[in-house]
């Protein structure tokens, strides 16, 4: 199997599986986050956040998710570096067949920006909820039992009082959407689940999935920005 890990197609195989896994995660994550916009009292979101923080299945999934990210990121760097080495000298006239901004050409840059967003995002919420704590988390709120965090207060406070973060989160949504607009169909191509008929369908689906995820995540900060 070690020859498979090193082979060009083998490496991409891991990229595609982790990428599809991350897309599934994003759908779950987005569904829960949209609860933020359904109930301004925060009861709904706090319940969901509490469920996610205590549910054993989610506990098991957390390290698997981290591993998925780590493999995807390390492999992406490895693949990108190897691919750059394959052309030691470039063209003076550039390569003009695809537009410079085509997501397919910029997967590493888009992914890298998503990674920067991810780090900011983890510090905004995850680190506080899990490790350092925050006074907002202990703020009393409707329907909050003892010992349950007021996660809604933490999120709402950031989005209502710091427009800079709204912009960062909207950008994050757009960037991950662009990454997926290529990544989704590319992953199916990589595992061989594509042909000339499905090519068009998968590319359409990729744009749909990318739009749902990108617009969905961008909608949440927009909601707070406009409503409050």
């Amino acid at each position: 199997m070690s020859s498979f890990m090193k082979a060009s197609i083998g490496r991409k195989f891991f990229m595609s599986l982790t990428g599809l896994f991350l897309i599934i995660f994003l759908f779950v994550h987005l569904t829960l986050n949209l609860l933020l916009t359904f109930d301004d009292s925060g009861v709904l979101f706090n319940e969901a956040a509490h469920f996610m923080a205590t549910n054993p299945i989610i506990k098991i999934m957390e390290p698997i998710l981290a591993l998925g990210f780590i493999i995807h990121i390390i492999w992406s760097g490895w693949i990108t570096l190897e691919n750059m080495k394959a052309r030691p000298k470039g063209y003076q006239a550039g390569d003009n067949l695809l537009k410079w901004y085509a997501p397919a050409k910029n997967m590493f840059i888009l992914g890298g920006m998503v990674l920067i967003f991810l780090i900011i995002h983890l510090f905004n919420f995850y680190v506080k909820m899990r490790f350092t704590g925050d006074p907002l988390l202990n703020q009393p709120g409707p329907g909050l039992e003892d010992g349950v965090h007021n996660s809604y207060a933490l999120v709402a406070n950031l989005f209502i009082h710091y427009p800079v973060y709204d912009i960062i989160y909207i950008l994050g949504g757009i960037l991950v959407g662009l990454h997926i607009s290529h990544g989704f169909w590319s992953a199916f191509q990589t595992i061989g689940l594509n042909n000339s008929k499905w090519m068009i369908r998968l590319k359409f689906l990729a744009h749909l999935v990318a739009f749902l995820i990108g617009a969905g995540f961008a909608y949440i900060p927009l909601y707070f920005l406009i409503k409050f």
Binding site: S8, I9, R11, K12, I79, E82, N83, M84, K85, A86, R87, D95, L97, L98, A102, A104, K105, M107, H182, W185, S186, Q189, T190
Partner: peptide, 9 residues
């Protein structure tokens, strides 16, 4: 040769 990233170029 490099690996394929499905750019389609």
């Amino acid at each position: 040769f490099g690996g394929c990233t499905n750019t389609g170029a």
